[in-house]
């Protein structure tokens, strides 16, 4: 449905963020996310940062498996 790419925010300026994913950098829109800071991780889709990523997938899934 929607390929999402986890990426790290490098710089922020005028609602745009330069993000880095394994050494590939691109400017994306950061308009949908408030209070972003360099170093934050975001999910990027079609040139837009659509969500903040708050955890690694491993610790997330470990926790879910503990809970079920």
């Amino acid at each position: 449905m929607c390929v999402g790419l986890p990426a790290k925010v490098v710089t922020l300026k005028n609602g745009m963020a330069v993000v880095d994913a394994s050494g590939a950098r691109r400017e994306v829109s950061a308009e949908l996310l408030d209070e972003l800071e360099p170093g934050d991780y975001v999910m990027v889709h079609a040139g837009i940062a659509i969500a903040r990523i708050t955890e690694e997938d491993k610790s997330e899934t470990d926790r879910i498996m503990e809970e079920i």
């Binding site: 999402g4 408030d34 969500a51 997938d57």
Partner: peptide
């Protein structure tokens, strides 16, 4: 919700 590191109950208000 098995994807809480990205998905919240409210989702993206600005979107």
């Amino acid at each position: 919700n098995c994807y809480p590191r990205v998905v919240t109950k409210q989702g993206s208000k600005s979107a």
